[in-house]
Design a protein around this nucleic acid. Structure first.
Lengths: 237, 237
DNA sequence: AGGAGTTTGTGAACAGGAGAACAAAATCGC
DNA sequence: GCGATTTTGTTCTCCTGTTCACAAACTCCT
């Protein structure tokens, strides 16, 4: 506590600006827990309350929140509305974000209809599909436009986020076009690895990977526990 | 440094059985890269080749694969078919897994139609929806059955994996019923935290959380780069 | 006003994963 | 047969994230 300049530098740099990635990934969960509390009329919540609702332990939640600042009151807890606003602001949800969805198959349609986007400041500016015949179809109040309009739409509305729900083979090409047009963040649902220029953020959601991870753990639970009946023979394909 | 017995214990325990969680999460990606190589007629691939295709660096890939065993040949690389089989086996994909999907909204329909499940040994045994009027509707060759059949279906087919695509409010109740019926792994798409008994695995996929994480980084890229025009005043709520 | 009881914020120890670097082991050319 | 070359498997170091434990700070009750 005497003086440790270099080590402090790091801590202060983090506190000042820049929140650990793992914490950022949990903030939306806390936000949801706060919204739920707010809807139930709760105005103050302890770290223990929120941690239970968010499915984490209270020490982690407090440390996470401490990166944002000291928004709690010792002996009392956190003001729900105030904390909700602070997290929203930190995540950038107090402003609107223009989004395009490319590839309107089953998943693209599901996303277009998903209410959770618009309520958090994500504005779907267009749905785009490679099939020109589908131009004009509507989902969730949004209209399908043709792929050739991509650059115009991104440019005109300042779209910064692109969602890719195309087949795997088309994903890289779409990503390239999105980035060239000005998109700087991509959410990729296509089962393919896409590579982009430095400075462009890509997040990947892969449905079948999640199931495969579950299968691994399921297998490890032991054949005895796994099935309802465990036939002594070979498993039937 | 002379002798550190306890530290070795850990290493050996891990090597013997039990693969790091981070590695398990990447194995499906490697599997996809191997399948792609196989389809292109490649029979041997180096760690560098595979790493590029999987979007990781080669040291990490080699270390990941080393947890499975020594399946490569120094100076040569990895036999694509052989490694593919080994990873499949490790992940438990050489056997079939019975799956039910509960909540056949847009997302549930998308999953029912998704080909990536059946090709990896995941057999959808039933689609279930709370609305009895929808009984009999078909998606991707699977029929909607009524919720009251849940226990029978899980019991009859030895279903071990449940996928929840209901609204948030219904998720916990569905999870409870699935677990009571015998399901031991759950993939939860509902925007809600669900709690289950110890020994039950839950993985959560949340579409809006991914977008919020992107928004955070997008905001950090600086107002100058982010928007099309950056108003000098206070940000408009 | 002051002590008892709560709850936050954070320092410190610990665990786990990432990446660099290198020794071991295989092939190939002569 | 043997050295040169390639590529794996592994060790070591660094860094990020998690958890514990406790002092600081606030409220409430008498």
């Amino acid at each position: 506590m005497t003086h440790a300049p270099t080590q402090r530098m790091r801590t202060e740099a983090r506190q000042g600006r820049g929140i650990p990635e793992a914490t950022v990934a949990r903030l939306p969960v806390y936000l949801r827990a706060l919204t739920a509390s707010s809807d139930r009329g709760v105005s103050v919540a302890s770290s223990q309350d929120l941690a239970t609702a968010a499915g984490v332990n209270s020490a982690k939640l407090r440390k996470d929140l401490s990166y944002l600042g000291s928004y709690g009151t010792r002996g009392v807890g956190y003001d729900v509305e105030y904390l909700r606003y602070q997290i929203s602001r930190e995540l950038g949800l107090t402003q609107d974000w223009a989004v395009v969805i490319v590839g309107i198959g089953n998943l693209g349609q599901a996303l277009a209809n998903y209410a959770g986007f618009s309520t958090r400041g994500f504005r779907i500016m267009a749905l785009l599909d490679a099939d020109p015949a589908r131009e004009g179809e509507r989902f969730g109040g949004h209209e399908i436009r043709r792929m050739t309009d991509l650059e115009d739409i991104v440019g005109a509305h300042g779209v910064s986020i692109g969602v890719i729900t195309t087949p795997a083979a088309a994903a890289q090409g779409v990503a390239d076009r999105l980035v060239a047009a000005g998109v700087t963040s991509i959410l990729n649902f296509a089962p393919a690895v896409i590579s982009v220029a430095p400075g462009i953020d890509v997040r990947k959601v892969d449905l079948s990977i999640e199931l495969q991870i579950l299968a691994y753990h399921e297998q490890r639970k032991g054949p005895a526990t796994a099935g309802v009946t465990s036939p002594p023979g070979v498993e039937s394909a």
